[in-house]
Design a binder for these strands. Sequence first.
DNA 1: TTGGAAATACGCAATAATGCGTATTCTTCA
DNA 2: TGAAGAATACGCATTATTGCGTATTTCCAA
Lengths: 223, 223
Amino acid sequence: MKFAESKLRMPINIAIAEDNSFALKACIDKVNLFPECRIVLKAFNGEELLENIAKHSVDLILMDIQMPGMGGIICTQKIKQNYPQIKVLMLTTFDDDENIFHAIMAGASGYLLKEEPADALRESIMDTLSGGAAMSAGIALKVLNLLRNPALKPAEILENFGLTKRELELLEHLKNGLSYENIASNLFISYGTVRKHIENIYRKLQVNNKVEAIRKAGDNRLI
Amino acid sequence: MKFAESKLRMPINIAIAEDNSFALKACIDKVNLFPECRIVLKAFNGEELLENIAKHSVDLILMDIQMPGMGGIICTQKIKQNYPQIKVLMLTTFDDDENIFHAIMAGASGYLLKEEPADALRESIMDTLSGGAAMSAGIALKVLNLLRNPALKPAEILENFGLTKRELELLEHLKNGLSYENIASNLFISYGTVRKHIENIYRKLQVNNKVEAIRKAGDNRLI
DNA sequence: TTGGAAATACGCAATAATGCGTATTCTTCA
DNA sequence: TGAAGAATACGCATTATTGCGTATTTCCAA
């Protein structure tokens, strides 16, 4: 799915929360390059944003993470509580894990570095409003690592056991609890063929019944 | 940081693993548009890729997730074990949570939908080789959601179905693939009793066979 | 183009599982 | 203490699954 191509309500109403006036201007200048976007609200901190957000029909907020008073993370949390339809793109100069994690938990739809060029920012806005999420490449890597580390899977060696594409299909149906008969009619093959496929699966997986086959396949991420 | 602007060793050696020859050609055509990239290896499945990967100095692999024989996830795992410096970009037509999660765990540096346009693919390759990660917008959203709910659903929607302690024991044995006979001797009860317990379990869970019972019990965290 | 793997298909035979009825014993709680 | 539920147990009948052998067709790669 190419989110950026979806139809969106126009114009897109953008709010910007940014305490640094230089960074604010840079951000405004970028957004003003996008003909479909209109800046309807500027705020220098979280409180100011929350006070005025209801006065406008805001679609998306570009939110600085570090602001005096209420910071971007708390503000995002409150925004998502009261206006869950409003998307929040987090902007920051730092890509530290803590901030990223908390911003995600607060409900941000994306996390961008401030130096993203205008076209990348525009694409991120469009993707976000189309139901996706946006991340700078460096952020994305950290998010993946966040996801990997808590689990800490002991890189077990997964095997494929030489199963063919068709055999994996059969396994999928077995997993769903279908009888041979049902599998046969679902795959438009004969009962006998189903049996033979399953025999071959059992031999390759070295098991003797459905349950063991499903479990072994599952353990090895085959299904 | 704008990863794509970093200096990279040229040319970039790309390997492609894709079983569908049509999709393979589409992918090749895209990569051939990038003057800094060179396709050095094409494979139709994981085994073929692993066999030949050492013969080339591959920088990055574009890996189909679903292939006959060894699939993309297992292949990625093996690649990262043996050649950790090689980056892997997962390509798929489906953005289901399970595959994304497993691909990330296997060590993929990115996860893209196959229909990404050439320029997005190019940017993803550059970002990845510069130390970042790449995700389609829809994928990124799912990753964020994976991170937000640590795979635990509160027990409120989960049912117990009135199963007794003993019946849960039986289910545990069913899950392990044991036959009625084996369950009987493990629990020191008769074959007939096992049958009766299982009958009762099926009635309570409203299922008609082992596989469905195990699945339903698992879905409801009963086992 | 050709050999091998994969997918298709069926028969025979044995074992496993399922559905229903019935019955006894044991525990627990009102 | 008495009733209800739980656990135990078996018989009969039917369907499903599994194991092994064999065979044809299809597809792909050497």
